[in-house]
Design a protein around this nucleic acid. Structure first.
Length: 622
DNA sequence: GCCGTTTTCGGCCCGACTGTTTTCAGTCG
């Protein structure tokens, strides 16, 4: 295959001359992981156009993927001399990245990138355009300005200048225009839905499908099955012997538009604007299909690479012996993984974070399950005591009833601390004393049966003020069993300031036991704070403070990637719902999903402890 | 350019889809 290594037939030297005024590349030594990944992808694209060894191109793309998925800043890892621990970064790339962080430039990248017109690189972000097409369009249409290249291309498509280019046609113009449309939408990031919304939609449809006797199994696929915090499209798999009947039934589900219908499935645009794909498969091959479409992409690539080493090739229909071409089908995913000599890997951890290696060597963690949860420590009742933030909508007795129904041994009421702006410290202490007495009175008035089953802990969610002090006077701590401390203001402080602020708060009183929704992120609305997480984790570990995994739908905070990191350091977690209304206590399972995605076992989670053990953890931190 | 149950050389995931083609290249997930 000599052709792979020869120079592209396109006359890039000529093009480079046309664009010679446009040669400088701006990047700096404080690039984010995302920006570095984009830089490496640009180099890979240039290599591809220039006809470099295709595996070198793939190596750059792999490194870019891997850097994009890191949970710490690459620059911090460089600081710590840990560049070589990044998968896909070998000695050559490590040396280039070292040059980048030291000098803010990489000579080799500049050389490669400047062989091509700079205006091709923005086009790579448009769906449907890869290196080859981007290069051809830029060359043929002489699109010089990288700042306006996307708008220029849009204009060229609208005025039908693209159909005239060899290899493009009228349809290409439409595809390019719709690609530019989604590129623009992608910039606004409005498309993804939060996990519970996607989960609810999928559950309704799965229940609807399961009413048919022809449906043997129905499951979500993709990021929803892996329980990622935000979901793009909803994909659903069905095992059946009567695919046509199932598809007919599916397209009768209430919708605004039937987008596609074929022998293997159908796509609907629902009334709520969400898109749902259905895929059908015969029961014998259902396991292979589930595995294939659950992903993640990185997990599947790693798994297929592993299989190739054993003379096997994986696809959506089964496992093929490379030598004989014999295909074995699998009805279940368990069987599929077993055939690869490893235990079943739960969907939540299929992210290529070491789960395949762990499975092969028998080190796969036994992930926490919803039924392991024995209590919920973060909820707000409708008891009104001049609280600093919002109060809840339900009575404490409703919360206790619900806890009993969920089989919990205990709950903690964690109302916000009293407002500090219009009350003296003395008044606040009095309010807290009265609050404790009120809750105790409510609890004592319960029926004996409920009291025996569910214990009540009187806690408080205390604001961490801008300087790290707590918004509750020391004397008031006498009236709570324990405190959750949380950030509710000044989210944009510098990393140094916010880290110091958090650590000050965590170590300011022995009754501070849980760090609530640690990053403060609100999905699709607010980024989390930029703290030095390893330092925060070390403090939690030292003082035996639990990091909260807040299950509230738009929080899911601590995020799964940080759960994974913190767990490696031996930090404990507490999964809470932060309920402001009694039915929200059902959201616990989303918190459990986050914990599972972070590889947590029940031993990593303090509210899997029975009441007595939990109480002793609260008091002594054992 | 990376990497190791084929470990310092010789491989590198897999198939679907689409448009422009008449047998395939490019892109995507």
């Amino acid at each position: 295959m000599l052709g792979l290594y020869t120079t592209s037939p396109l006359a890039h030297s000529m093009i480079a001359q046309v664009f010679e005024e446009d040669k400088s590349f701006c990047y700096d030594r404080d690039m984010t992981n995302l920006e570095i990944a984009e830089l490496l992808r640009n180099v890979a694209a240039a290599y591809e156009i220039l006809g470099e060894n295709p595996f070198k191109t793939i190596a750059y793309q792999k490194a870019a993927d891997s850097i994009e998925h890191l949970t710490s800043d690459l620059k911090d890892m460089w600081d710590d001399g840990k560049l070589d621990t990044v998968p896909g970064v070998g000695s050559a790339l490590a040396s280039h990245l070292d040059e980048l962080f030291r000098t803010g430039k990489v000579k080799h990248f500049d050389q490669v990138l400047s062989k091509l017109p700079k205006s091709i690189y923005p086009l790579l972000l448009v769906p449907g355009l890869g290196p080859k097409k981007a290069y051809k369009l830029v060359s043929e249409l002489t699109l010089k300005d990288s700042k306006t290249v996307i708008a220029d291309l849009e204009k060229a498509a609208q005025t039908h200048k693209i159909a005239a280019i060899v290899g493009f046609g009228e349809k290409s113009e439409e595809v390019i225009l719709s690609g530019i449309e989604s590129y623009k939408r992608g910039q606004i990031k409005e498309n993804r839905m939060m996990l519970p919304e996607a989960d609810g939609i999928a559950r309704d449809i799965i229940n609807y499908l399961k009413k048919m006797p022809e449906v043997n199994h129905a499951d979500p696929l993709g990021s929803l099955r892996r329980q990622v915090a935000t979901i793009g499209d909803i994909d659903i798999a069905v095992a059946t012997r009567k695919p046509a009947v199932v598809i007919e039934h599916f397209v009768k589900y209430p919708h605004q538009k039937l987008i596609d219908k074929g022998a293997a499935g159908a796509t609907l645009l629902l009334n709520n604007g969400r898109q749902v794909d259905l895929r059908v498969q015969k029961p014998e091959a259902y396991g292979a299909m589930l595995q294939y479409f659950t992903g993640s992409k990185h997990h599947n690539i790693k798994l297929r690479t592993y299989a190739v080493g054993r003379g096997l090739s994986l696809n959506e229909y089964g496992i093929k012996q490379v030598k004989t071409g014999k295909l074995t089908e699998f009805a279940s995913e368990e069987g599929f993984y077993q055939a690869l000599h490893m235990p079943y890997i739960p969907p939540e951890i299929r992210e290529d974070k070491g789960e395949i290696e762990a499975a092969v060597s028998g080190r796969l963690p036994k992930l926490i399950e919803l039924s392991d949860i024995k209590g919920d420590l973060h909820m707000h009742t409708n008891y009104n005591f001049s609280s600093s933030h919002d109060i809840g909508a339900s009575h404490v007795k409703e919360h206790l009833d619900k806890a009993a129904a969920l089989g919990y041994e205990y709950i903690g009421i964690s109302d916000h601390n009293p407002s500090i702006s219009n009350q003296t410290q003395k008044q606040i202490v009095a309010v807290m004393k009265k609050r404790k007495e009120w809750y105790e009175q409510q609890y004592y008035s319960l029926k004996d049966g409920l009291k025996k089953r569910v214990h009540l802990l009187i806690m408080c969610e205390v604001d961490i003020l801008t300087d790290g002090k707590l918004a509750l006077p020391d004397e008031a701590f006498e009236y709570v069993d324990a405190a959750i401390v949380s950030l509710h203001s000044s989210f944009t402080q510098s990393r140094k300031d916010i880290t110091k602020r958090i650590i000050t708060a965590l170590t300011s009183h022995p009754k501070v036991r849980i760090f609530g929704h640690p990053t403060g992120r609100l999905l699709a609305r607010r980024e989390g704070v930029d703290a030095d997480w390893p330092e925060v984790f070390a403090t939690c570990k030292k003082h035996s403070i639990a990091l909260e995994i807040n299950a509230y739908p738009d929080r899911l905070d601590l995020p799964d990637s940080l759960v994974y990191e913190a767990r490696k350091e031996g930090v404990k977690f507490c999964i809470d719902t932060d309920s402001h209304e009694v039915d929200q206590m059902d959201m616990m399972r989303y918190g459990v999903s986050v914990a599972r995605r972070g590889w947590a076992t029940k031993h990593d989670i303090v509210n899997t402890l029975g009441y007595n053990e939990f109480k002793s953890w609260l008091q002594k931190g054992v």
